[in-house]
Amino acid sequence: MVAGSLSDAAWRARVRTAALTSDEVAVTALADRAGSRALKSQLTAADRRIAAAKGLDGEVGSLLRLRLGDASMRTALTAGTAPWVAAATSDDNATTITAYDSHGLAHTLDARKPPARPVYVVDIDGAKALVAGLNVLSKELARNGIASAAPAAQQDLADPSRATAATSGFWTTRITAVELSDDEEPWSKGDAEIYTLVTGFGRDGNVRIDPVDMPYLDNDGTVYRPNQILVNWANYKYNLADAVMMEEDGSTNYRDLAKAIATVLLAVIDQGAYIPLVNAVLEAIPDDWWTDDPDYVDSWYTLAQSDRGTRHGARGNGWMTVEPYFVQQS
């Protein structure tokens, strides 16, 4: 669809200008501004299918994005070389990528070495999808009987209505530094969209899961220092919790994930002592998530309220430095 549309010289020039002046192009909106009704209709229909496949509400809006595959392609694109179009891959182990020209002909490219010819990569807005998805996840978990707060990146943790702690404040665990392993990835893959499911036993003794959006964690091999709240201990019965780090990609259906997790975790009973829940969460992840595009990043068992220092993930794919942090309430 997008590749074929580039046979129109005026549209091709409009897309080229947008791709050279922006990291990502909202291609559906661009088609609307260009007055291309037929293309806009096709892209809008594709947006609806993507939202439905991911279990998102229709109000999420357009998720389709177009970007230049690699910065090295800018010179050729500026010079007027006709670009090809490829779909983003979520498979870190891909060795080839298929791109299409404006005549619909397929071209096989090396996934590790960017080609000399410019290639547009069609992807989804991962950050936008993740924000909407975590809201759906939290609501669906609650609807299925698992307590869950709004995604932590959106909470006002200083608001007393968000916690059951004393009016003077409450203790949290804060991430002061975090890094994921430096793995070679295909040039067509965009930034990672990472989130963490914090799980433990709520004050009522039932299992709860609190999603935490980590929008800054874009690239492997980079140390980030977010000073982000990971665990709000006012929500938990014990001074221990687990964390399962995941990556958003095109295959993630948040409604299905919530139902799968709820099915497994509702069977876990508080026995008067803390029980790690990482394995239960991993068992709930649909089988197809473990093939080609592993959405599971790493996990941390039994994070303690008193933990201070660096904790390495059980999978060996990342580490984070944490510290107790008291949130003062006014």
Score class of each variant (00 low, 15 high):
294 P>W: 01
166 A>W: 09
124 I>E: 13
137 L>Y: 02
231 V>Y: 10
200 G>C: 08
199 T>R: 02
181 S>M: 07
127 A>T: 15
171 W>S: 14
263 T>D: 15
85 V>D: 02
290 W>S: 15
207 V>I: 14
59 E>M: 06
292 D>F: 13
142 A>C: 03
18 A>L: 14
246 M>H: 09
269 I>S: 14
139 K>F: 01
288 D>V: 13
154 Q>T: 14
321 T>F: 08
280 A>N: 06
103 H>F: 00
129 A>K: 10
54 K>A: 13
278 V>H: 07
276 P>I: 09
221 G>E: 05
145 G>P: 06
28 T>C: 03
137 L>P: 00
121 V>S: 02
23 D>I: 03
304 A>M: 13
49 R>D: 11
210 D>I: 04
47 D>W: 09
114 P>M: 08
102 S>A: 04
326 F>K: 12
330 S>N: 12
328 Q>M: 15
54 K>C: 12
216 Y>G: 10
241 A>Y: 02
149 A>F: 02
27 V>R: 06
239 N>R: 11
28 T>Y: 01
94 A>L: 11
61 G>Q: 05
26 A>H: 00
193 E>T: 14
60 V>M: 02
168 S>H: 08
323 E>G: 02
174 R>D: 05
268 V>A: 05
123 D>N: 13
282 L>T: 09
110 D>F: 09
19 A>L: 10
265 L>V: 12
82 A>N: 13
248 E>G: 04
200 G>T: 11
125 D>R: 12
182 D>Y: 08
315 R>P: 07
298 D>Y: 06
281 V>I: 14
152 A>R: 04
293 D>W: 05
202 G>P: 02
297 V>P: 12
205 G>A: 09
14 R>G: 04
330 S>K: 07
88 A>K: 06
74 R>W: 04
84 W>A: 04
292 D>W: 03
15 V>W: 12
259 K>F: 02
273 A>S: 11
101 D>C: 06
235 N>M: 05
316 G>T: 10
252 T>W: 04
58 G>H: 07
279 N>E: 14
298 D>C: 11
171 W>C: 04
122 V>P: 07
156 D>I: 13
65 R>E: 15
281 V>N: 00
161 S>E: 09
315 R>T: 15
33 R>V: 13
242 D>A: 01
247 E>H: 01
168 S>M: 02
112 R>Y: 12
79 A>D: 14
225 R>S: 13
86 A>P: 09
184 E>L: 12
124 I>D: 04
86 A>R: 04
70 D>P: 07
119 V>I: 15
100 Y>P: 00
114 P>S: 05
309 G>E: 01
181 S>E: 10
282 L>W: 00
258 A>D: 07
167 T>H: 06
305 Q>N: 04
324 P>A: 13
21 T>H: 06
9 A>D: 09
